[in-house]
Simulated assay, not measured.
Amino acid sequence: MIMSRPMPPASVLDELVNPVFEPAPELVEWARQTFIADDAKLYNPDHHHLNFASIGALWTNVGNSRKGRQIIGQCEEGSPSGMMGKWGKARAEMQITQWFGHVLDFVMTFDAVYCAECSDAEFCALIEHEMYHAAQDRDPFGAPKFRKSTGLPVFALRGHDIEEFVGVVRRYGADASHVRALVDAANAGPEIANVGIAHACGTCQLRAA
């Protein structure tokens, strides 16, 4: 059974004029208890490395879209990109610290309006989608990377498992296209719920070619 999920606060939903970004520690705690902890109700071993990650979440009332699609979730690295310039990076780090107390490994942002209205299964799928972007880095041989000084995982943003054209799969098959695992997972049916999610992920859109 899906645990009672956190809902966006009225302070975000009821503000119709000014942009709001409000930290959601209750959402991170819920995600840990639902998907990450070893005794979680919907435990997913794919997220085990996040036991060691510092994660922050934000509710927002700011509408977002890219390429004509609504964006309702996004995962970013907690440390701002150096491409922002020294002042921009320092300004962004100051904002993260004001919200969460320190610079995190990952920050996830969610559309409060969508999250208040979607089903439990859609909500879980959205949260897990963003969690899948919060990955443990890999070495050139595909092995998980750890910091030599602490033994803790090295984190990085992750793209999708499958990067292939439908036409290639149609012409050459799942094995030749290296998508057999996806096909088998689809044929096995959903483990939790069969949902259709009409949303876009900001992380995916930013990484799309």
Rank of each mutant, 00 (worst) to 15 (best):
N64W: 08
P19C: 09
M84T: 03
L27H: 07
T150D: 06
P80W: 06
D184R: 10
V154F: 02
I55D: 04
S4I: 12
A156Q: 14
I192K: 02
R147V: 02
A92F: 07
T203C: 14
N18E: 08
D14F: 12
P6L: 12
E164H: 01
R158K: 15
N61D: 11
C115M: 15
V28N: 07
R170P: 00
E130P: 05
S149Y: 00
L42E: 12
W87H: 05
E22T: 14
G73I: 04
C201W: 00
I72Y: 10
T150Q: 05
F110D: 14
H133G: 03
M131S: 04
A57H: 03
G202H: 08
V17S: 08
G167V: 05
R5T: 11
A125C: 10
A193M: 00
E93F: 05
A125Y: 08
A134N: 04
I197L: 15
D137C: 03
T109A: 09
K86Y: 06
A116E: 14
D46C: 09
G73K: 08
I197D: 02
A200E: 09
S79Y: 02
A121R: 03
N51Y: 00
D39T: 08
E164W: 00
C204V: 01
K148R: 15
A188F: 01
D105K: 02
A176V: 03
F141A: 09
G68L: 04
P144D: 07
I71Q: 10
A92D: 08
F146W: 09
A209R: 13
L157F: 02
R32I: 10
R69K: 12
L157H: 05
A53L: 03
R69V: 11
A134W: 01
R69M: 10
P144K: 09
T109D: 05
K148Y: 09
M84I: 04
F155L: 07
I197F: 05
L182K: 11
K86S: 12
I72F: 09
Q205R: 06
A193S: 08
H49D: 05
A116D: 15
T34P: 14
G173Q: 07
A186I: 13
C118S: 13
G73W: 03
A134S: 11
V20G: 04
M83F: 06
F141V: 05
Y172Q: 13
N187G: 01
S81P: 11
L42D: 11
P45D: 06
V166M: 14
E117T: 12
F165T: 10
A31V: 11
L13G: 07
R69A: 09
Y172T: 13
W59R: 15
E163H: 10
N194D: 15
F35D: 11
A53M: 02
I36Q: 11
T34I: 12
P8I: 12
I192W: 09
D137L: 04
Y132E: 08
N64G: 01
M108P: 02
P19L: 10
E191K: 13
D38Y: 01
Y132D: 06
H129W: 01
V20N: 06
A188M: 05
Y43V: 05
Y132W: 05
A53G: 05
Y172K: 14
R69S: 07
I192S: 00
V62S: 02
W99P: 14
L16W: 06
E163L: 14
G73D: 06
G202T: 09
F100K: 09
M7R: 15
F35Q: 11
A92Y: 06
